[in-house]
Amino acid sequence: MPKTFESQTPRILLEDVRKTFKLRHTHSIKETVVAAARRKPLTSSFHALDGVSFSIASGESVALLGFNGSGKSTSLKMISGVLRPDTGRVLTRGRIAGLIEVGAGFHPDLSGRENIYLNAAILGMSKKETENRYDDIVAFSEIEQFIDTEVKHYSSGMFLRLAFSVAIHTEVDILLIDEILSVGDEPFQQKCLARIRELHAQGKTLVVVSHDLDMVSDLCDRGILLRDGKVAFDGDSKEAVALMRA
Results as ranks from 00 to 15, higher is better:
101 E>A: 09
135 D>T: 09
132 N>H: 12
173 D>F: 09
178 D>I: 09
158 M>H: 05
138 V>F: 00
136 D>V: 04
135 D>S: 09
124 G>R: 09
144 E>F: 03
102 V>M: 14
160 L>H: 06
166 V>W: 02
113 R>F: 14
178 D>W: 12
190 Q>G: 12
196 I>C: 08
166 V>N: 04
182 S>G: 12
149 T>V: 15
186 E>L: 13
117 Y>D: 11
114 E>Y: 06
125 M>I: 11
111 S>P: 06
157 G>K: 03
180 I>L: 08
154 Y>W: 04
118 L>M: 15
189 Q>T: 13
170 T>A: 06
160 L>T: 15
186 E>K: 06
164 F>Y: 06
151 V>H: 01
200 H>W: 09
159 F>V: 03
200 H>A: 13
113 R>N: 11
176 L>A: 03
195 R>H: 13
192 C>S: 13
154 Y>C: 01
121 A>P: 10
148 D>A: 03
168 I>M: 01
100 I>Q: 07
177 I>N: 00
129 E>L: 03
128 K>S: 15
113 R>E: 14
124 G>M: 06
145 Q>P: 10
196 I>P: 03
178 D>R: 07
178 D>Y: 14
122 I>Q: 08
181 L>P: 10
101 E>V: 12
101 E>P: 14
201 A>F: 09
201 A>W: 12
155 S>I: 05
177 I>A: 00
102 V>F: 13
117 Y>N: 11
141 S>P: 09
148 D>H: 12
136 D>S: 12
107 H>C: 10
144 E>N: 01
138 V>C: 01
154 Y>E: 06
141 S>Q: 00
165 S>E: 02
189 Q>M: 07
104 A>W: 12
151 V>M: 00
177 I>V: 15
125 M>N: 10
197 R>V: 10
163 A>R: 03
120 A>N: 11
169 H>T: 02
152 K>A: 04
141 S>M: 04
111 S>E: 09
173 D>T: 10
111 S>G: 07
127 K>D: 15
175 L>C: 02
152 K>W: 08
124 G>V: 10
140 F>W: 03
